[in-house]
Design a binder for these strands. Structure first.
Length: 427
RNA sequence: GUGGGUGUAGCUCAGUGGUAGAGCACUGGAUUGUGGCUCCAGGUGUCGCGGGUUCAAUUCCCGUCACUCACCCCA
């Protein structure tokens, strides 16, 4: 092969794009009902934005960013996630001074230089939502419920909602030292990886998959029990709201995320069946009440999530797409081809999708192809039809044919496409 | 970044130290202009890439790249 695609970056061909369209439009449809508006931010941002928001010592920033240098010392990075850029856009455009409450969504490619595997690629696609300016737990619950609704709507029913709270900065600091104190005497029981994290980021030990770490952590203090004051109120408010909605959830005190900006509510939606293996996190998010301020803006509470579209496509049952009906035009001979060209234009002008087979093949091959494409109708135009100013209209599913005068064509075809059922799959 | 598996036709895969096959798909014909079945015919491959051993390598050896699964991490 002369040129291979860049590792972990894939082409999406027309055959597959239909599933993407349906997923994306379902997302837009659902979030629009909650009054989210789309924001499109650049794929490139200053590296510093991601370092500051995601966190200097996170894996994403330390080793997974596509970063390159520009002249005069500028460093740019291809966005590894959407929250940082959205927050930057929120500040850049001084949105907080125009409206007190903002709901945004985004949809598009993200880039991380990881080792690709099933459901994880270097260029991948995320859809996400951000709410700025709402501190209360109601919006947390609303967002989780919206996500469940969305997954049901795209045919993913086996999802579990996992939630946790890591409190605000003060609570996190308290818990951090309690956890370190608890783990330090047991350092020998931990995996090497967890041991190295003990001092740098002890919370991450909680969601280690290593059996030794899991065992050591079972008796660890729970952050939920240490929540106080407003942190506790918020957490309890969230549970109350979820209960009121009847949204099922799992409290997972070990749930911790890999990005530094989170505070209080943390959540994850996981696929519980299907073939995703270890990459079963379909959606992750939480609050990041301190982020906007830390980027130099006003103190603005915020909450958001991102979901991986590739994974959702893997998790969603492969429902065959309902193709928009169309017809194939099969001309026989030079003069019929010229007539067909004009006929096709007139049909298209009437809003009908037409596949003009102008290769000059045999009628049989054109009909075979029309079948293979699952066209509803095939219009045959030969010399005798041209002479009489008609076309032969074949209903490919019903094996019937009728002659239609050229003048009646667009209207007649429109009617037939609306009423003729699609040929059954595999027939 | 670490470890395992796999690279042969468009796809799924067989196979051999003497430069290669099947099924599906595709094209044509049987049916001078009427389809999904059937039958017949046809074409396609730098056998991932580079090097080594050999009279001879797609086959054996080494390296490398890609894909893939898992770890890690995350969506």
């Amino acid at each position: 092969m002369q040129y291979a695609p860049v590792k972990g970056m894939n082409d999406i061909l027309p055959d597959e794009i239909d599933r993407w369209y349906r997923l994306e439009s379902a997302f837009r449809r659902v979030v629009s009902r909650y009054r989210y508006g789309e924001v499109r931010t650049p794929l490139l941002e200053h590296t510093e934005l991601f370092v500051r928001s995601i966190g200097e010592t996170t894996d994403v920033v330390e080793k997974e960013m596509f970063t390159f240098a520009r002249p005069k010392g500028e460093s740019l990075t291809m966005r590894p996630e959407g929250t940082a850029g959205a927050a930057r856009a929120y500040l850049t455009n001084k949105v907080q001074s125009r409206e007190p409450l903002t709901r945004w969504y985004y949809l598009g490619p993200m880039f991380r230089a990881e080792q690709p595997q099933r459901g994880r690629y270097r260029q991948f696609h995320q859809a996400g939502c951000e709410v700025y300016g709402d501190l209360g737990p109601l919006v947390d619950a609303e967002m989780l419920d919206m996500l469940v609704t969305f997954f049901h709507e795209v045919g993913v029913f086996d999802v579990e909602v996992c939630i946790n709270s890591i409190g605000g900065e003060a609570a996190r600091a308290r818990y951090r030292s309690a956890l370190t104190e608890f783990l330090r005497p047991r350092a020998q029981e931990l995996s090497e990886h967890a041991r190295s994290r003990l001092e740098t980021n002890p919370l991450r030990v909680l969601d280690s998959k290593d059996a030794r770490d899991r065992a050591a952590v079972t008796e660890a203090p729970s952050i939920l029990e240490m929540l106080e004051g407003e942190d506790r109120q918020h957490w309890e408010g969230l549970l109350t709201a979820l209960d009121a909605l009847g949204t099922p959830y799992l409290v997972r005190p070990g749930l911790v995320r890999g990005l530094d900006y989170y505070s209080r509510t943390l959540f994850e939606l996981n696929a519980t069946s299907g073939e995703l293996g270890a990459q079963n996190t379909l959606c992750g998010g939480g609050r990041y009440d301190g982020m906007v301020k830390s980027l130099g803006g006003p103190d603005t509470p915020a909450i958001g999530f991102a979901m991986g579209l590739e994974r959702i496509l893997l998790a969603a049952a492969a429902v065959p797409a309902a193709k928009t009906p169309f017809c194939v035009l099969a001309p026989l001979g030079r003069s019929a081809q010229l007539t067909a060209l004009a006929v096709a234009r007139d049909l298209r002008a009437a809003g009908i999708a037409v596949d003009l087979d102008g290769r000059g093949n045999s009628l049989k091959s054109m009909l075979r192809r029309a079948d293979a494409l699952r066209a509803r109708l095939c219009l045959v135009i030969g010399d005798s039809e041209v002479a009489r100013a008609v076309v032969q209209v074949k209903d490919l599913a019903g094996h019937s044919a009728a002659e239609v005068a050229l003048g009646d064509l667009p209207g007649r075809i429109g009617e037939l496409l609306a009423t003729t059922p699609s040929p059954p799959e595999g027939a």
